[in-house]
Design a protein around this nucleic acid. Sequence first.
DNA 1: GGTTATGATTTTAC
DNA 2: GTAAAATCATAACC
Length: 364
Amino acid sequence: MDDQTRMLAGLGGLGGLSQADVGDPDSVRKQQSLGQPQQDIGDILQQIMAITDESLDEAQARCWPEEAPAQWTPQREGELGGSTAGCALPLNFQHRKHALNCHRMKPALFSVLCEIKEKTVLSIRGVQEEDPPDPQIMRLDNMLLAEGVSGPEKGGGSAAAAAAAAAAGGSPNDGSIEHSDYRAKLAQIRQIYHSELEKYEQACSEFTNHVMNLLREQSRTRPISPKEIERMVAIIHRKFSSIQMQLKQSTCEAVMILRSRFLDARRKRRNFNKQATEVLNEYFYSHLSNPYPSEEAKEELAKKCGITVSQVSNWFGNKRIRYKKNIGKFQEEANLYAVKTAVDAANVSAQASQANSPATPNSG
DNA sequence: GGTTATGATTTTAC
DNA sequence: GTAAAATCATAACC
Protein backbone atom coordinates (compact mmCIF):
# COMPACT_ATOMS: atom_id res chain seq x y z
CA MET A 1 0.00 0.00 0.00
CA ASP A 2 2.87 2.31 0.75
CA ASP A 3 4.30 1.76 -2.69
CA GLN A 4 0.96 2.44 -4.27
CA THR A 5 0.62 5.59 -2.27
CA ARG A 6 4.05 6.77 -3.23
CA MET A 7 3.39 5.95 -6.87
CA LEU A 8 0.12 7.79 -6.79
CA ALA A 9 1.67 10.69 -4.97
CA GLY A 10 4.14 11.02 -7.81
CA LEU A 11 1.36 11.29 -10.35
CA GLY A 12 -1.46 12.56 -8.25
CA GLY A 13 0.34 15.50 -6.75
CA LEU A 14 1.02 18.67 -8.58
CA GLY A 15 3.65 16.84 -10.56
CA GLY A 16 6.64 19.08 -10.24
CA LEU A 17 4.74 22.19 -9.28
CA SER A 18 6.17 23.32 -5.97
CA GLN A 19 4.35 25.51 -3.58
CA ALA A 20 6.53 28.36 -4.81
CA ASP A 21 5.47 27.64 -8.40
CA VAL A 22 1.81 27.83 -7.58
CA GLY A 23 2.09 30.56 -5.02
CA ASP A 24 2.58 30.26 -1.29
CA PRO A 25 -0.23 31.53 0.99
CA ASP A 26 1.62 34.75 1.85
CA SER A 27 2.17 35.79 -1.72
CA VAL A 28 -1.41 34.82 -2.50
CA ARG A 29 -2.66 37.02 0.29
CA LYS A 30 -0.59 39.84 -1.10
CA GLN A 31 -2.24 39.33 -4.45
CA GLN A 32 -5.69 39.41 -2.91
CA SER A 33 -5.51 43.14 -2.78
CA LEU A 34 -4.96 43.28 -6.53
CA GLY A 35 -8.62 42.82 -7.41
CA GLN A 36 -11.43 40.25 -7.73
CA PRO A 37 -9.96 37.86 -10.37
CA GLN A 38 -6.66 37.60 -8.52
CA GLN A 39 -8.52 37.08 -5.30
CA ASP A 40 -10.48 34.23 -6.91
CA ILE A 41 -7.32 32.53 -8.05
CA GLY A 42 -5.70 33.13 -4.70
CA ASP A 43 -8.63 31.53 -2.93
CA ILE A 44 -8.72 28.47 -5.07
CA LEU A 45 -4.96 28.02 -4.94
CA GLN A 46 -5.06 28.21 -1.18
CA GLN A 47 -7.75 25.58 -1.13
CA ILE A 48 -5.81 23.32 -3.45
CA MET A 49 -2.64 23.76 -1.45
CA ALA A 50 -4.45 23.01 1.76
CA ILE A 51 -5.77 19.78 0.28
CA THR A 52 -2.58 18.73 -1.47
CA ASP A 53 -0.57 19.46 1.67
CA GLU A 54 -2.28 16.49 3.24
CA SER A 55 -0.61 13.20 2.56
CA LEU A 56 -2.46 10.68 0.45
CA ASP A 57 -2.60 8.32 3.36
CA GLU A 58 -4.41 10.96 5.33
CA ALA A 59 -6.70 11.75 2.45
CA GLN A 60 -7.51 8.10 1.91
CA ALA A 61 -8.05 7.56 5.59
CA ARG A 62 -10.73 10.23 5.43
CA CYS A 63 -13.67 8.77 3.70
CA TRP A 64 -16.28 10.71 1.84
CA PRO A 65 -19.67 10.46 3.49
CA GLU A 66 -21.50 9.78 0.24
CA GLU A 67 -19.07 7.01 -0.73
CA ALA A 68 -18.39 5.21 2.52
CA PRO A 69 -21.08 6.18 4.99
CA ALA A 70 -20.27 3.33 7.33
CA GLN A 71 -16.94 4.89 8.20
CA TRP A 72 -18.05 8.49 8.31
CA THR A 73 -19.61 9.87 11.43
CA PRO A 74 -20.12 13.40 12.70
CA GLN A 75 -17.62 12.60 15.45
CA ARG A 76 -15.13 11.46 12.84
CA GLU A 77 -15.71 14.67 10.93
CA GLY A 78 -14.97 16.57 14.10
CA GLU A 79 -11.72 14.69 14.48
CA LEU A 80 -10.82 15.39 10.92
CA GLY A 81 -11.54 19.04 11.32
CA GLY A 82 -9.34 19.06 14.40
CA SER A 83 -6.49 17.37 12.64
CA THR A 84 -6.33 20.07 9.98
CA ALA A 85 -5.76 22.80 12.51
CA GLY A 86 -2.38 23.49 10.92
CA CYS A 87 -3.98 24.49 7.61
CA ALA A 88 -4.36 28.09 6.61
CA LEU A 89 -8.11 27.88 6.31
CA PRO A 90 -10.33 26.86 9.23
CA LEU A 91 -12.48 24.62 7.02
CA ASN A 92 -12.56 20.92 7.52
CA PHE A 93 -11.51 18.67 4.71
CA GLN A 94 -14.94 17.97 3.29
CA HIS A 95 -15.92 21.59 3.30
CA ARG A 96 -12.75 22.51 1.51
CA LYS A 97 -13.38 19.86 -1.09
CA HIS A 98 -16.90 21.05 -1.61
CA ALA A 99 -15.82 24.66 -1.87
CA LEU A 100 -13.13 23.74 -4.33
CA ASN A 101 -15.45 21.72 -6.53
CA CYS A 102 -17.97 24.52 -6.65
CA HIS A 103 -15.47 27.21 -7.39
CA ARG A 104 -16.14 28.80 -10.77
CA MET A 105 -12.43 29.00 -11.63
CA LYS A 106 -11.69 25.37 -10.83
CA PRO A 107 -12.12 23.79 -14.32
CA ALA A 108 -9.99 26.44 -16.00
CA LEU A 109 -7.29 26.27 -13.36
CA PHE A 110 -7.15 22.49 -13.36
CA SER A 111 -6.93 22.51 -17.14
CA VAL A 112 -3.92 24.84 -16.99
CA LEU A 113 -2.27 22.80 -14.25
CA CYS A 114 -2.79 19.59 -16.20
CA GLU A 115 -1.24 21.23 -19.23
CA ILE A 116 1.81 22.38 -17.29
CA LYS A 117 2.20 18.97 -15.77
CA GLU A 118 1.91 17.37 -19.20
CA LYS A 119 4.69 19.59 -20.50
CA THR A 120 7.06 18.93 -17.61
CA VAL A 121 7.09 15.60 -15.81
CA LEU A 122 4.90 13.50 -18.07
CA SER A 123 6.63 14.48 -21.27
CA ILE A 124 9.91 13.21 -19.82
CA ARG A 125 8.32 9.93 -18.76
CA GLY A 126 6.56 9.57 -22.08
CA VAL A 127 9.81 9.06 -23.97
CA GLN A 128 10.33 5.54 -22.68
CA GLU A 129 6.72 4.48 -22.75
CA GLU A 130 6.12 3.81 -26.43
CA ASP A 131 8.47 0.86 -26.79
CA PRO A 132 8.00 -1.80 -29.50
CA PRO A 133 6.90 -5.34 -28.62
CA ASP A 134 9.68 -7.17 -26.81
CA PRO A 135 11.35 -9.73 -29.13
CA GLN A 136 12.04 -11.94 -26.12
CA ILE A 137 8.32 -12.12 -25.30
CA MET A 138 7.57 -12.82 -28.94
CA ARG A 139 10.05 -15.70 -28.96
CA LEU A 140 8.57 -17.14 -25.77
CA ASP A 141 5.05 -16.77 -27.14
CA ASN A 142 6.00 -18.53 -30.35
CA MET A 143 7.64 -21.36 -28.51
CA LEU A 144 4.71 -21.84 -26.14
CA LEU A 145 2.38 -21.84 -29.12
CA ALA A 146 4.51 -24.34 -31.02
CA GLU A 147 4.68 -26.65 -28.00
CA GLY A 148 0.93 -26.46 -27.54
CA VAL A 149 1.17 -24.84 -24.12
CA SER A 150 -0.55 -21.65 -25.12
CA GLY A 151 -3.20 -21.36 -27.81
CA PRO A 152 -5.86 -23.96 -28.62
CA GLU A 153 -5.42 -27.33 -26.92
CA LYS A 154 -6.43 -29.54 -29.85
CA GLY A 155 -3.51 -31.94 -30.38
CA GLY A 156 -0.77 -29.36 -30.12
CA GLY A 157 1.02 -31.38 -27.52
CA SER A 158 0.53 -34.69 -29.26
CA ALA A 159 1.81 -33.26 -32.52
CA ALA A 160 4.92 -32.07 -30.71
CA ALA A 161 5.24 -35.46 -29.05
CA ALA A 162 4.92 -37.21 -32.39
CA ALA A 163 7.57 -34.96 -33.86
CA ALA A 164 9.78 -35.62 -30.86
CA ALA A 165 9.28 -39.37 -31.19
CA ALA A 166 10.09 -39.20 -34.88
CA ALA A 167 13.22 -37.20 -34.15
CA ALA A 168 14.23 -39.81 -31.59
CA GLY A 169 14.44 -42.32 -34.40
CA GLY A 170 11.38 -44.46 -33.88
CA SER A 171 7.91 -44.20 -35.26
CA PRO A 172 5.47 -42.25 -33.09
CA ASN A 173 3.57 -45.44 -32.34
CA ASP A 174 6.64 -47.24 -31.04
CA GLY A 175 6.62 -45.43 -27.76
CA SER A 176 2.93 -45.01 -27.13
CA ILE A 177 3.51 -45.24 -23.37
CA GLU A 178 6.19 -42.55 -23.46
CA HIS A 179 4.03 -40.57 -25.86
CA SER A 180 1.05 -40.50 -23.52
CA ASP A 181 3.38 -39.79 -20.62
CA TYR A 182 4.78 -36.83 -22.52
CA ARG A 183 1.29 -35.57 -23.30
CA ALA A 184 0.19 -35.92 -19.70
CA LYS A 185 3.19 -33.97 -18.44
CA LEU A 186 2.75 -31.33 -21.09
CA ALA A 187 -0.91 -31.00 -20.14
CA GLN A 188 0.16 -30.54 -16.54
CA ILE A 189 2.55 -27.76 -17.52
CA ARG A 190 -0.18 -26.22 -19.65
CA GLN A 191 -2.64 -26.28 -16.79
CA ILE A 192 -0.21 -24.67 -14.37
CA TYR A 193 0.70 -22.04 -16.96
CA HIS A 194 -2.92 -21.10 -17.61
CA SER A 195 -3.92 -20.98 -13.97
CA GLU A 196 -0.95 -18.77 -13.14
CA LEU A 197 -1.65 -16.59 -16.14
CA GLU A 198 -5.24 -16.20 -15.04
CA LYS A 199 -4.10 -15.21 -11.56
CA TYR A 200 -1.75 -12.59 -12.95
CA GLU A 201 -4.41 -11.20 -15.25
CA GLN A 202 -6.90 -11.00 -12.42
CA ALA A 203 -4.39 -9.30 -10.15
CA CYS A 204 -3.48 -6.88 -12.92
CA SER A 205 -7.06 -5.95 -13.62
CA GLU A 206 -7.88 -5.59 -9.91
CA PHE A 207 -4.87 -3.41 -9.30
CA THR A 208 -5.56 -1.33 -12.41
CA ASN A 209 -9.14 -0.74 -11.35
CA HIS A 210 -8.03 0.16 -7.86
CA VAL A 211 -5.50 2.67 -9.14
CA MET A 212 -7.92 4.12 -11.67
CA ASN A 213 -10.55 4.62 -9.01
CA LEU A 214 -8.06 6.28 -6.73
CA LEU A 215 -6.80 8.57 -9.47
CA ARG A 216 -10.33 9.48 -10.52
CA GLU A 217 -11.13 10.25 -6.94
CA GLN A 218 -7.97 12.28 -6.64
CA SER A 219 -8.71 14.10 -9.87
CA ARG A 220 -11.52 15.87 -8.06
CA THR A 221 -9.06 17.65 -5.85
CA ARG A 222 -5.83 17.44 -7.85
CA PRO A 223 -5.06 18.20 -11.47
CA ILE A 224 -5.00 14.71 -12.95
CA SER A 225 -5.97 14.40 -16.61
CA PRO A 226 -7.56 11.27 -18.14
CA LYS A 227 -4.46 10.96 -20.28
CA GLU A 228 -2.37 10.73 -17.16
CA ILE A 229 -4.59 7.98 -15.81
CA GLU A 230 -4.15 6.14 -19.10
CA ARG A 231 -0.40 6.47 -18.76
CA MET A 232 -0.51 5.10 -15.26
CA VAL A 233 -2.55 2.12 -16.47
CA ALA A 234 0.04 1.53 -19.20
CA ILE A 235 2.82 1.58 -16.60
CA ILE A 236 0.98 -0.96 -14.47
CA HIS A 237 0.42 -3.19 -17.49
CA ARG A 238 4.10 -3.08 -18.33
CA LYS A 239 5.03 -4.07 -14.80
CA PHE A 240 2.63 -6.98 -14.91
CA SER A 241 3.78 -8.05 -18.34
CA SER A 242 7.31 -8.38 -17.01
CA ILE A 243 5.96 -10.77 -14.40
CA GLN A 244 4.16 -12.60 -17.18
CA MET A 245 7.41 -12.88 -19.07
CA GLN A 246 9.00 -14.61 -16.10
CA LEU A 247 6.11 -17.05 -16.04
CA LYS A 248 6.51 -17.69 -19.76
CA GLN A 249 10.22 -18.16 -19.35
CA SER A 250 9.89 -20.72 -16.58
CA THR A 251 7.17 -22.54 -18.55
CA CYS A 252 9.46 -22.70 -21.57
CA GLU A 253 12.22 -24.10 -19.39
CA ALA A 254 9.89 -26.76 -18.04
CA VAL A 255 8.87 -27.73 -21.58
CA MET A 256 12.50 -27.87 -22.69
CA ILE A 257 13.40 -30.12 -19.78
CA LEU A 258 10.44 -32.38 -20.50
CA ARG A 259 11.31 -32.46 -24.17
CA SER A 260 14.96 -33.21 -23.58
CA ARG A 261 14.02 -36.05 -21.26
CA PHE A 262 11.58 -37.39 -23.79
CA LEU A 263 14.10 -37.04 -26.55
CA ASP A 264 17.07 -38.32 -24.59
CA ALA A 265 17.61 -41.38 -26.70
CA ARG A 266 20.15 -42.80 -24.28
CA ARG A 267 17.36 -43.44 -21.84
CA LYS A 268 15.44 -45.56 -24.33
CA ARG A 269 17.84 -46.64 -26.97
CA ARG A 270 16.34 -48.77 -29.70
CA ASN A 271 18.48 -50.95 -31.92
CA PHE A 272 18.02 -50.32 -35.61
CA ASN A 273 16.06 -53.00 -37.35
CA LYS A 274 17.85 -55.86 -39.08
CA GLN A 275 17.31 -54.54 -42.57
CA ALA A 276 18.73 -51.11 -41.66
CA THR A 277 21.82 -52.68 -40.06
CA GLU A 278 22.29 -54.82 -43.16
CA VAL A 279 22.13 -51.82 -45.47
CA LEU A 280 24.65 -49.94 -43.33
CA ASN A 281 26.99 -52.92 -43.04
CA GLU A 282 26.81 -53.54 -46.77
CA TYR A 283 27.90 -50.00 -47.46
CA PHE A 284 30.60 -50.14 -44.78
CA TYR A 285 32.22 -53.37 -45.96
CA SER A 286 31.93 -52.51 -49.63
CA HIS A 287 33.73 -49.23 -48.91
CA LEU A 288 36.15 -50.67 -46.37
CA SER A 289 39.10 -48.86 -47.92
CA ASN A 290 37.33 -45.55 -47.36
CA PRO A 291 34.31 -45.97 -45.08
CA TYR A 292 33.31 -42.30 -45.16
CA PRO A 293 30.02 -41.83 -46.94
CA SER A 294 29.41 -38.44 -48.54
CA GLU A 295 26.51 -36.28 -47.40
CA GLU A 296 24.46 -37.52 -50.37
CA ALA A 297 25.29 -41.13 -49.55
CA LYS A 298 24.38 -40.55 -45.92
CA GLU A 299 21.05 -39.08 -46.94
CA GLU A 300 20.33 -42.02 -49.19
CA LEU A 301 21.29 -44.51 -46.49
CA ALA A 302 19.16 -42.64 -43.98
CA LYS A 303 16.20 -42.83 -46.32
CA LYS A 304 16.76 -46.53 -46.98
CA CYS A 305 17.07 -47.35 -43.29
CA GLY A 306 14.35 -45.06 -42.01
CA ILE A 307 16.73 -43.20 -39.69
CA THR A 308 18.18 -39.71 -39.61
CA VAL A 309 21.38 -38.56 -41.29
CA SER A 310 22.98 -37.94 -37.90
CA GLN A 311 22.15 -41.48 -36.87
CA VAL A 312 23.91 -42.68 -40.01
CA SER A 313 26.91 -40.54 -39.05
CA ASN A 314 26.86 -41.96 -35.52
CA TRP A 315 26.65 -45.48 -36.82
CA PHE A 316 29.62 -45.01 -39.15
CA GLY A 317 31.60 -43.31 -36.43
CA ASN A 318 30.99 -46.17 -34.03
CA LYS A 319 31.57 -48.80 -36.70
CA ARG A 320 34.88 -47.37 -37.86
CA ILE A 321 36.34 -47.13 -34.39
CA ARG A 322 35.07 -50.54 -33.29
CA TYR A 323 36.21 -52.22 -36.47
CA LYS A 324 39.64 -50.64 -36.21
CA LYS A 325 39.99 -51.68 -32.58
CA ASN A 326 39.14 -55.30 -33.23
CA ILE A 327 39.50 -56.24 -36.87
CA GLY A 328 39.75 -59.92 -36.03
CA LYS A 329 36.39 -59.95 -34.38
CA PHE A 330 34.75 -58.31 -37.38
CA GLN A 331 36.59 -60.50 -39.94
CA GLU A 332 33.81 -63.03 -40.22
CA GLU A 333 31.25 -60.31 -40.71
CA ALA A 334 33.49 -58.64 -43.28
CA ASN A 335 33.81 -61.89 -45.24
CA LEU A 336 30.08 -62.41 -45.11
CA TYR A 337 29.33 -59.01 -46.56
CA ALA A 338 32.16 -59.36 -49.10
CA VAL A 339 30.52 -62.51 -50.42
CA LYS A 340 27.12 -60.86 -50.37
CA THR A 341 28.45 -57.88 -52.28
CA ALA A 342 30.15 -60.16 -54.81
CA VAL A 343 26.94 -62.11 -55.35
CA ASP A 344 24.95 -58.91 -55.75
CA ALA A 345 27.50 -57.58 -58.22
CA ALA A 346 27.34 -60.83 -60.18
CA ASN A 347 23.57 -60.63 -60.28
CA VAL A 348 23.69 -57.07 -61.50
CA SER A 349 26.17 -57.89 -64.27
CA ALA A 350 24.14 -60.92 -65.27
CA GLN A 351 21.04 -58.81 -65.52
CA ALA A 352 22.94 -56.24 -67.52
CA SER A 353 24.30 -58.78 -70.01
CA GLN A 354 20.85 -60.27 -70.33
CA ALA A 355 19.45 -56.89 -71.12
CA ASN A 356 22.18 -56.26 -73.70
CA SER A 357 21.78 -59.64 -75.49
CA PRO A 358 19.31 -59.80 -78.47
CA ALA A 359 15.84 -60.68 -77.36
CA THR A 360 14.56 -64.15 -78.26
CA PRO A 361 10.94 -65.32 -78.30
CA ASN A 362 11.68 -67.62 -75.32
CA SER A 363 13.51 -65.15 -73.24
CA GLY A 364 11.38 -64.19 -70.34
C1' DG B 1 22.25 -60.61 -12.60
C1' DG B 2 26.29 -60.34 -15.42
C1' DT B 3 28.12 -59.64 -19.94
C1' DT B 4 28.14 -58.03 -24.45
C1' DA B 5 26.33 -55.21 -28.21
C1' DT B 6 24.99 -50.97 -29.72
C1' DG B 7 23.29 -46.19 -30.37
C1' DA B 8 24.19 -41.63 -28.58
C1' DT B 9 26.89 -38.08 -26.41
C1' DT B 10 31.03 -35.80 -24.92
C1' DT B 11 35.80 -34.71 -25.24
C1' DT B 12 39.77 -33.97 -27.85
C1' DA B 13 42.60 -33.05 -31.82
C1' DC B 14 43.07 -31.22 -36.19
C1' DG C 1 33.18 -28.30 -38.65
C1' DT C 2 34.59 -33.15 -38.73
C1' DA C 3 36.44 -37.40 -37.15
C1' DA C 4 38.57 -40.18 -33.54
C1' DA C 5 38.36 -41.75 -29.09
C1' DA C 6 36.29 -42.23 -24.70
C1' DT C 7 32.33 -42.73 -22.26
C1' DC C 8 27.50 -43.36 -21.07
C1' DA C 9 23.14 -45.73 -20.98
C1' DT C 10 20.27 -49.12 -22.44
C1' DA C 11 18.93 -53.35 -25.18
C1' DA C 12 19.69 -58.03 -25.84
C1' DC C 13 21.37 -62.20 -24.68
C1' DC C 14 22.90 -65.97 -21.69
